[in-house]
Simulated scan of single mutants.
Amino acid sequence: MFDFRPAPDTPKPEAYRQLCDAADALTAGEPDAVANMANVAALLWDFLPDLNWAGFYRLVEDELVLGPFVGRPACIRIPLGKGVCGAAASAGRTQLVEDVHSFPGHIACDAVTRSELVVPVIREGAVVAVIDLDSPVAARFDQADAEGIEALAAVLEKRI
């Protein structure tokens, strides 16, 4: 049985270090990208409070395709450059959005989402996926969250 969940009072940088360590432990030596994304989506859900969606979109040809996640049903395909996920994938940069309703072209897969953090997973200079976190809380994510998920993306770059 795995129980990686940090204590509720764990400072954010330490919680993200523990998240990266847990993801590393669960994905090391496992060649199946889908299995690795599924376990990491579950870790994200356990580690991070105030989420309504946590998971992956994979870059397949010229669009993002839904990968493993935890949360409500989601959009299956997202064109590059569309919405927060498409913007992160096309720019190859983290998108930290305090209010999704003010983001031009936001795609509302779940009407309760208020803020979003999307981090590209980059392998050999190319985006292969994005890690997507949604919250019903406005301004839920900050720079520490972005840095923590960017560190996670680095752990996963060759495992998904």
Rank of each mutant, 00 (worst) to 15 (best):
T113P: 00
E98L: 15
A89T: 03
D32K: 08
V100K: 05
L59I: 09
C85T: 03
N36V: 13
V84N: 15
G86E: 13
D99Y: 14
R93C: 01
A25Q: 05
I107K: 00
V118F: 04
G105R: 02
C85N: 05
T94Q: 01
F103E: 08
P68H: 06
N52E: 12
G83S: 12
V100P: 06
N52V: 15
P68Q: 12
S90T: 10
L44A: 10
P49Y: 05
L26F: 06
E116N: 13
I78D: 01
D32W: 07
Y57P: 04
W45P: 14
G86Y: 09
A88V: 09
A87I: 06
L96Y: 09
L96I: 05
F69R: 03
V70T: 08
R72H: 07
R114T: 01
H106E: 05
L66T: 05
L117V: 08
R58M: 09
V121E: 10
F56C: 07
F56E: 07
W53K: 12
V70C: 01
L43Y: 10
G92K: 03
C109A: 11
W53Y: 05
V65P: 04
M37L: 11
G67F: 08
L117T: 08
G86T: 07
T27E: 02
L64N: 02
E61T: 15
A74E: 06
D110F: 00
V97R: 12
L64C: 11
S115H: 03
S115Y: 02
R72T: 13
S115N: 05
C75I: 07
G81Y: 02
P79Y: 06
K82T: 14
G55W: 01
P79L: 08
P120Y: 02
L80F: 03
D50N: 06
L51V: 15
A41D: 13
Q95S: 12
T94R: 02
D62T: 08
L59S: 12
A25Y: 04
Q95G: 09
L96T: 12
R114F: 00
V34T: 08
L26N: 06
A91R: 07
M37K: 14
A54I: 11
P120G: 01
P68A: 12
E116W: 04
G67C: 04
G29D: 01
L96M: 05
P73D: 05
G71F: 08
R114A: 06
W45I: 02
D50M: 03
I107T: 13
S102I: 14
C75P: 06
G83A: 11
L51I: 15
P49G: 03
R77V: 11
A42C: 13
V60W: 00
A41Q: 10
S115F: 01
E30A: 06
